[in-house]
């Protein structure tokens, strides 16, 4: 396989995962904005931008951070490289460039996704219903993973694509938690009241963890437990721990296939053991924000190391 192909596959996985996470985050923001919370709703649209990154670019091009503008920017804006439109386009480009190493089914699913996205505009989405649209994006991502898992040979092509998926997911979960936790938990205030319940509930729902929380804790929603669930619980599929368990397995498979070690294996192992053996108390002692900021850096370093080990060449 070529380094360029590995790179394309890795980014294909990342882009599709990014589309899904953007949809999840916008969906929860949309739902929250329907609650009678007044000023907080406005704050949430800002938070959506903050999580997705690119606030500066947004500010240059749009006047106010209202729902319409933010949806326009994060879903449809072809000039925003992280918009759902752009990442589906890029994922399709990656698929097209790697058709020799993937499967026809995978190409077709990404090509169909792109053809549909291309035909969208704001009014069409509004008419269809925002939540329905975001569900559709999630479904396209589920389909992508399903088709990959169901049709691709278990060789390095598959591994690189999956590495992209879980590296991106870890990044997105950490960002979501970092920003939301900060907004929802003004210094020292206890959680209480219906609004807070819905807010935290929505955050859990955005990562499909609402019922998991209930089943796991049999208790009311406590912010620290939400964080614990999304960071440390290995059985929760969008948690950081879970992402790194997947990454660890993929690196083990690559090690076996290539019969040698790479620096990124070591970095991933280090990150994984911190999640695997980490304790909630020490995270909160240190400060959740500091912990997550540090995690995001380490995760980004791993991405850079994967790229330099396998994809850049010299």
């Amino acid at each position: 396989m070529l380094s360029r192909t590995a790179n394309d596959l890795f980014w294909m996985g990342r882009y599709v995962e990014r589309a899904e996470n953007t949809a999840r985050m916008l969906d929860v923001t949309w739902r929250m904005s329907l609650l009678p919370s007044g000023d907080r709703a406005a704050g949430d649209w800002g938070a959506a931008l903050q999580i997705g990154g690119g606030e500066d670019v947004f500010a240059e091009r749009y006047v106010s951070a209202n729902a319409r503008n933010i949806i326009q920017y994060m879903v449809l804006d072809g000039d925003n490289p992280s918009s759902i439109y752009s990442v589906f386009r890029l994922a399709r480009e990656n698929a097209r460039a790697t058709r020799g190493t993937t499967t026809t089914e995978l190409w077709q699913s990404l090509n169909d996704t792109w053809l549909e996205v291309q035909a969208l505009d704001y009014d069409k989405i509004a008419k269809r219903g925002f939540s329905r649209f975001f569900d559709w994006v999630k479904e396209r991502s589920h389909l992508f993973r399903g088709v990959s898992t169901g049709t691709m040979l278990r060789d390095d092509a598959y591994f690189f694509q999956r590495l992209g998926t879980f590296l991106e997911r870890a990044d997105n979960t950490a960002r979501l938690l970092d920003v939301k936790y900060h907004i929802l938990l003004p210094a020292g205030e206890p959680v209480g009241g219906a609004i807070d319940y819905y807010q935290w509930g929505a955050l859990l729902r955005s990562v499909s963890a609402f019922s998991a929380y209930k089943r796991r804790f049999h208790d009311a929603i406590w912010p620290q437990r939400v964080a614990e669930l999304l960071i440390l619980h290995g059985d929760m599929p969008r948690s950081l721990h879970s992402c790194y368990r997947e990454l660890d397995g993929l690196f083990a498979a690559l090690r076996e296939l290539y019969r040698r070690d790479f620096e990124c294996f070591r970095l991933a192992g280090k990150n994984y053991s911190r999640l695997r053996y980490g304790r909630a108390e020490s995270i909160f002692q240190r400060g959740l924000h500091e912990y997550l900021a540090d995690f995001l850096d380490r995760n980004a370093d791993l991405g850079a190391q994967i790229s330099s080990d396998f994809m850049l060449g010299n």
């Binding site: 070529l2 380094s3 360029r4 590995a6 020799g100 690189f160 290539y258 994809m311 010299n314």
Partner: peptide, 21 residues
């Protein structure tokens, strides 16, 4: 392999292809 020019490079008198390995 189907390659593009950017996937190949020259060093020490030979042509090489960039692969993950």
């Amino acid at each position: 392999e189907l390659v593009e020019g950017q996937d190949l490079f020259v060093t020490d008198g030979f042509v090489f292809m960039r692969t993950p390995q």
